[in-house]
């Protein structure tokens, strides 16, 4: 392997495949990639190209990736097999920098697939539970069918205040129905450190509520998604205002990006 070449692909072994729901699979991959919490990798699939995929969890050389099958590259994961081989490069991007929340309340807010980007953060916080005060993790899913990581909720809920809401009622769902913004109304908000990942409209709605409750936008971090090709700051695709989401982000302090984030089509 040529470590100098940012386009060099490394080999990974698929250790485990777990079907999350009708269009999403999680794969546990063993490789030489050493990510930090908040980073992502580029998966390469032969003849189809690459896609940026978050590291949803990592331990001892194994990274977990949760992929929603939406197109060419992600389509490859539809029939992915345990013991199979995948090719990837990375890790890329910055980290959540959760250490700055030590000694404080934490609110994690995840919309849809955004939970893949906050899962490892949550796990880190649980591992270092004594360093934080109250920890809320709010997760909104479009529907019951779309929920991710269902088997984990009870485990997380033992350590942190994990709450889920789904967008539409479902006979199989006995929990909360409604928007994620409603979950925010129920909790105590006292100078917390906030971490958000979800679709742009959700992020904007959530930030509006938080700031109306007196949260300083400097205390809000969001992980953004943009079109990415190179992931090393040279192809220009991920540009958003003066930022390269691939290398300056994907995690941004909301106060830094607010001016551009709130303008249409920037």
């Amino acid at each position: 392997m040529n470590v100098q070449n940012p386009y060099s692909l490394v080999k990974g072994k698929v250790v485990k495949v777990h079907r999350e729901n009708y269009n999403t699979v999680s794969v546990l991959v063993e490789s030489d990639i050493k990510p930090e919490v908040g980073q992502y990798v580029m998966f390469y699939t032969f003849g189809r190209g690459e896609a940026p995929i978050t590291v949803a969890s990592y331990q001892d050389g194994m990274s977990l990736h949760t992929v929603r099958i939406v197109g060419d590259v992600t389509g490859y994961f539809q029939h992915i097999q345990e013991e199979g081989t995948v090719y990837l490069r990375g890790p890329y991007g910055n980290t959540w920098g959760f250490e700055e929340a030590y000694g404080r309340d934490v609110i994690i807010i995840s919309g849809g697939l955004g939970l893949a980007a906050t899962r490892w953060l949550m796990e880190k916080i649980i591992q270092n539970r004594d360093n934080f005060k109250v920890v809320y993790s709010l997760y909104g899913s479009k529907s019951f069918q779309d929920l991710l990581y269902k088997e984990k909720y009870n485990i997380w809920a033992r350590e942190i205040d994990f709450r889920v809401t789904v967008g539409t009622p479902d006979p199989a769902w006995t929990g909360r129905v409604g928007m994620i913004t409603q979950l925010l109304e129920d909790i105590k908000i006292e100078n917390p450190s906030i971490f958000i990942c979800g679709p742009d409209p959700m992020v904007k709605a959530v930030v509006d509520i938080l700031s109306s409750k007196g949260v300083n936008k400097r205390e809000i971090k969001v992980s953004l998604e943009r079109h990415m090709k190179c992931s090393v700051g040279t192809c220009g695709h991920c540009m958003f205002g003066p930022f390269f989401v691939c290398k300056d982000g994907p995690v941004f302090r909301y106060s830094d990006i607010e001016y551009f984030y709130t303008k249409k089509s920037v």
């Binding site: 386009y7 032969f46 003849g47 189809r48 190209g49 690459e50 090709k229 190179c230 040279t234 192809c235 220009g236 695709h237």
Partner: peptide
């Protein structure tokens, strides 16, 4: 101006792909 795309150029036999 430096922006670029990365395209996959595949052989008909599908044993070779150029990025």
């Amino acid at each position: 101006c430096f922006c670029f795309d990365i395209k996959e150029v595949n052989s008909i036999e599908l044993d070779l792909s150029e990025r």
